[in-house]
Design a protein around this nucleic acid. Structure first.
Lengths: 147, 147
DNA sequence: TTATTAAAAGACAAAAAGGTCTTTTAATAC
DNA sequence: GTATTAAAAGACCTTTTTGTCTTTTAATAA
């Protein structure tokens, strides 16, 4: 469904938020390890997210990543679109350019319902809501769970 | 959602089926043109599908592709899996290897519902049912519609 | 100010996806 | 048979995605 980059970004953002709630700022090494993503790839992804303002970072000793309070309630959708574009949210299941109500592809209505659900999900959930899910439900999304 | 290759395959299969219903066997050139896919790429895709038994082909004059009666009711899902594997139908939205009921990711339940819908759609529809959709609904899935 | 820590920047590389083209094989038409 | 038509086979290429690594910059600690 999502690209690897998007998956790593989502997992990493939730991990950062969870740590921030404990007043910690995890660094790339910690994030990559916990979300089971390659170190350098993780570094690159979060550099980009930092440049785009989704996270803040601090260099040097005690440095690491953190999410500003006003950003933690950003819908996942915006993060996803920033990474992989919006095809998933607007495209036709059949891949047709000009598929619409006037001119529907054979999957138009059925696929439309699924696409609407995807939209609803990622527009409704936020990094914060996922972090809360994790806290509430005796969690599970990373090595944390192995305890 | 789907790979380009899958989209072309779905569009092409439906087009072949529609033409078969008119007792025609379209060739690669015709298929590629009608579904707006690159000629050589389309050729490669249908060679593979022929090798896998999803379509039959005939060489030489009057040759082209056709779908055997017993194959036309094959669920889209089988075709899709043959092309791009089953990740879409089994994977975790978060990309976790061991995400399950015991150990759910923060998106587990919400994403699970979407994945179930996708499964239901592609398990329920067939090349034939899509062709019928097209015939019934004053169609639309290709250049045909430009009339 | 020097050492250390950690992110930023950016080059580089491997793998997968997407796409192109030439040659070969098999069918039909003559 | 020969010519023609059209798929099969397979080499090749381009772009995107995924991943790696080195060097630079900025922060803190001593």
């Amino acid at each position: 469904m999502f690209k690897k980059e998007t998956e790593y970004a989502l997992r990493g953002m939730v991990y950062i938020q969870l740590q921030n709630l404990k007043d910690r700022r995890p660094g790339v090494a910690e994030i990559a390890h916990e979300i089971e993503a390659p170190y350098f790839f993780t570094a690159k992804i979060f550099q980009r997210l930092a440049k785009q303002g989704f996270v803040k970072s601090m260099k040097g000793k005690g440095g690491g990543f953190f999410i500003e309070p006003e950003k933690k309630d950003l819908p996942l959708k915006e993060l996803i679109i920033a990474i992989e574009g919006e095809e998933l949210f607007v495209g036709c299941g059949f891949g047709l350019k000009n598929c619409d109500e006037e001119n529907p592809c054979p999957l138009h209505h059925q696929y439309g319902m699924i696409r609407d659900q995807i939209n609803k999900l990622v527009a409704g959930e936020t990094i914060q809501s996922l972090a809360q899910n994790t806290l509430n439900k005796t969690l599970a999304f990373s090595r944390d769970t192995e305890k």
